[in-house]
Structures are given as structure tokens and as C-alpha cells.
Nucleic acid binder design. Structure first.
Lengths: 141, 141
DNA sequence: TAGGGTAGGTCTCATATAAAGACCTTAGAC
DNA sequence: GTCTAAGGTCTTTATATGAGACCTACCCTA
């Protein structure tokens, strides 16, 4: 918990007024989290965690992603140095994506979040049912 | 790292074919991460980590959020049981938001992610510069 | 030699989600 | 009266995502 608070404190500095007055957008933490916080990035990193995948394999592993978003997410992750892209000169050419060392370093923090989500899901679900079921017992104002 | 892999394995089960054939959408992990992975949730939880805030305080703390998204994100977090909302019958009424125990339990995993983002930002930034600067040295195909 | 399959995409167009910013209500202070 | 303040809602516009047709280059088959 003290760890958490110190990270939070560090993060808060970026949010301070002085920093914001110029450009709030350059907060590194927000920059990074906004990127990997999109709909597919975490899913893709998790899928690549066990072994490298080819384009088609990824598409089969994550069935409900469109090719367009698959391509775009892979490009973004590659740009951020989290994955590497290797083309093999087969006919037709095949492409293999795998996690870079930087990407691997993300696994531990990501896993702790997934672990939390998995263990707390029942609480969250219960809270939702409570909230949706009793919208009038606790009036808004 | 073994922790990471076991969490990943657990997560992968949800992604398996059998699960997907019915409804991939009911993966608890994706459900939770999609929600707190939006643009403002993490920022808001972090802001509430130190102390409770009123609506206006939050708006000042996170300057570039619109009132609409502030309201909506707060509702969503409340619905998920991560924060609590308390109305004081002042004139005009004031409202205080604070982290619930469930919300507090999120701080540790969230902090480890923030810590990662903060420490690895320079690597990521360097990777971006490299990628953007040399789009032809490593041709796409 | 015309057709079909395969790998890894790109392109266009439709829809879903987010953001900006005007507006609302109630009440006390000037 | 009209200014401000808190905590919102509503409408319009921008951005992100999705579906799915199409492309290229090669091989195989009949």
C-alpha cells in the first residue's frame, strides 16, 4: 500500500497545476496508459506472452477483432517497442510478431491487474446489480 | 514472472474456443479492463486515492475532462462499486466522492502499472522516435 | 490456362463512443 | 434584479471502431 501511494504521489506531480498550465498532455503516465488502455492492446500482449504468433493466428486467437484493428494495434505496439515484427520470405510471405524485452517487462504489472480483475469480478458484478436494481431507493439528489 | 504467467494462463482460459463460441464478451477480465481502461477512470481513482473530492475539486484536479465525461465516469465507477457518492444537504447541495474498499484494493495493481509506465517511458519514447524516423530503413514487406 | 486457395494486409463506408460547450436549477450575496 | 456557485443535463460535432470488399503474388489443380 505504501508502494501504491508513492507511485500515486509521483503520478500526481505530473498532474500539478504548473505542469498542466503548459501541457497536461505530456504526462508520461497518461501517454502510456492511454495507448495500452485501448480496446485490444492488453489482449494482444497477453496473447503474445506465451509464444510468438503470426497474423492469422492472432486473428483466430482474438476472434472478435477486425483485421483493420488487428493491423493498427500491432503497428502501434510495434511503434512503442513492445513487440517486434519479423517478415519471412516465404511465398506468400509470412509475418511473425513477438514480444520484445520491453513488452515482457509489462507482463508483471499487467498480470497483477488481471489478477485483481479476476478475483474482484464477483464484487463488481454484485455492485452493478445493486446499482441497476435500486435506482430509486437511493435517489440521485 | 511465474505469477504473471499463471495469471495469463487463467486469462487465456476465458479466451478459449469453447468460451468464445458462446459469448466471448462475458470474459470477466475483459469486462473489467474495458471499463477501467477508458480514458478517465484510472486518473479519477488515482485522484481519489489520497482523499475524497467534491465534483468541482475533481474538475479542477483533472482540468481537461469535460463535465459530461466527469459525470459519466463517476457514475460508472459508482455503479461498479469502486467509489461512493454522498450528497450533503447544503444549499446548493454538495456531493462528495470517495474510494470504497473495493476501489482501494485496486490501488496496488494500478500503482504497479503506473510505476512501469513511469520507468519505461523513456524507452517507449525512444522506440517511437526510431519507428517514426526510419519508416523506410525497415520496409514494411 | 482459367480458376481457386493462401497470407497479410489496405480501402471505403457505416456506426458507436467521446468531447465541447451551451444551458438549467436553486439559493445566498451585492 | 443580477451575480456567482455547485452539480449537473442536452445538443452537436469529432474521433474510434467495425464490417467487409478488395489487392498482390505465388502455387496448385484440372
Amino acid at each position: 500500500m505504501s508502494d501504491a501511494l508513492s507511485a500515486i504521489a509521483r503520478f500526481s506531480r505530473y498532474q500539478s497545476d504548473d505542469a498542466q498550465s503548459a501541457e497536461a498532455l505530456h504526462c508520461p503516465v497518461r501517454d502510456v496508459l492511454d495507448r495500452i488502455g485501448d480496446k485490444w492492446s492488453i489482449l494482444m500482449v497477453m496473447t503474445l506472452a506465451t509464444r510468438p504468433h503470426r497474423f492469422g493466428e492472432l486473428h483466430r486467437a482474438i476472434r472478435d477483432i477486425s483485421k483493420r484493428m488487428l493491423t493498427q494495434t500491432l503497428r502501434d505496439l510495434e511503434r512503442d517497442g513492445l513487440i517486434t515484427r519479423q517478415v519471412f520470405p516465404t511465398k506468400p510471405p509470412s509475418v511473425e510478431y513477438c514480444l520484445s524485452p520491453l513488452g515482457q517487462s509489462l507482463l508483471d504489472p499487467m498480470a497483477s491487474l488481471i489478477d485483481w480483475a479476476d478475483r474482484r469480478y464477483s464484487d463488481i458484478h454484485a455492485a452493478r446489480v445493486r446499482f441497476d436494481g435500486a435506482p430509486c431507493d437511493v435517489p440521485r439528489e
